[in-house]
Simulated scan of single mutants.
Amino acid sequence: MSLKIDRGLFKYDFIDHHAILCVPVDADVKDIRKRYLQIARRLHPDSNASASAGEKKLASELLSKLVNPAYEHLSAERTRTEYMIVLSQMGKRLVQDSASVELTSDTAKQLAASPNIDHLYQTAIAKIAETQFNSLQQVISIICQISELNLVYLMRSAGKALSAPPPTPKPTSSPNPPTTTAAAPPPPPKDDAAVEQYLRRAQTLIEKNQFAQAKVELQDGLKLSPKSSRCHSMIGLVYLKQNQLKMAKIHFDNALKLDPNDQTALSWKPKIDKALGQQSSGSKVTSPPKSGHPEPDKSGGGGLFGGLFGGKKK
């Protein structure tokens, strides 16, 4: 049996590891590992004692040539980070080539037209995962179907910023409108629709103290939607946790320009301004290392960084 896959994202010379494992493109490492173990148990020779020699051989090929490489790629920090960057670029490319995208599965066509794309996408992936490896002869066809869903999801997510431009304010009929009607435009969080998946992944990484990976997600999100106040605010928090106060201040300032009510920026910016003021008056401010990597905080919780986060908590 041929293991060639030529639909969905595979059609663009891209190996869709998420489709092989049947996990959403925004799945975290924990969920990816859980899914991999389920598949590995299903394809292991000990789980197929009654299978024919041909079925055992096919199961072994699927495990060694598709499933294991997919898991290794998505579970290793470096390769997963690089892969996710390429994946986000694929979404932008698909928006540009949307006229030439061909869908063959009914589920993918439904997803392309659905107003509630996130719910339908997650539900469809979970449903397919239940039976993905029930018939080994159909596995490649099912992976193609999953990859089409991933293609549609990436294209729709990346295209939100382009498909719905902000409405033009309507002129008022009154020559002297009340000051309340001349208020600022709706709050910027509208812009964040295009980068929601990046924000979700970054938040998960921040909670795990994986700040370098979170910064990559947010930087890519800002490329897609540079006026996202939430993206600026969250990356400011990442820089703050890496003790890069000047970079944190820049992004908190940008967040407040875009949304003066951003709570994260409002909370941290005064503390950073105060810390930078003390730093410049008490000692020479050093520039961040040219390599872009933050210098380690050797204060054991003290100093500017420890002071900003309240030091050690009992």
Results as ranks from 00 to 15, higher is better:
V67D: 04
D6I: 06
Y12V: 00
M90Q: 05
G306T: 11
G221R: 02
V95A: 09
T181W: 06
H17L: 07
E77I: 06
A19P: 05
S299F: 03
S233H: 04
R230S: 09
N254Q: 14
G303T: 10
A164F: 15
S50L: 14
S173E: 08
K223S: 13
P185F: 08
G310Y: 12
K4H: 13
A194Q: 07
V101K: 01
P175E: 01
A53R: 12
G282F: 11
G310M: 13
R93W: 00
S229R: 03
F211Y: 13
P270L: 04
Y198Q: 12
T79N: 09
D220E: 15
S88N: 11
P189W: 10
K11L: 07
E82V: 13
G54P: 03
A202H: 01
D297W: 01
L149Y: 05
D297M: 04
E196I: 09
A212K: 03
A129C: 10
H44D: 15
Q263V: 14
K312A: 06
I235F: 08
I142T: 14
I250L: 09
R80D: 06
T179W: 02
Y71S: 03
N254E: 13
S52M: 03
A129Y: 08
Y198N: 05
P175T: 05
L103Y: 06
S52L: 02
V195W: 02
V195N: 01
T168K: 14
G8L: 01
K246A: 11
S60H: 11
V29M: 11
A112S: 12
I15D: 03
S287T: 14
V238E: 02
E207Y: 00
T286D: 15
I39D: 15
I272Q: 03
Y121E: 08
L205T: 08
S147M: 06
I128H: 08
K34R: 13
P69A: 07
A124P: 01
A108R: 05
I15A: 01
A164V: 13
N209E: 03
S291T: 15
Q89D: 11
S280Y: 03
N176R: 09
P165L: 15
M84P: 00
P45T: 11
E130W: 00
K160S: 05
L304A: 02
R35A: 15
D259I: 01
G300A: 10
R156T: 11
L43W: 12
Q197M: 07
F305N: 10
Y239H: 15
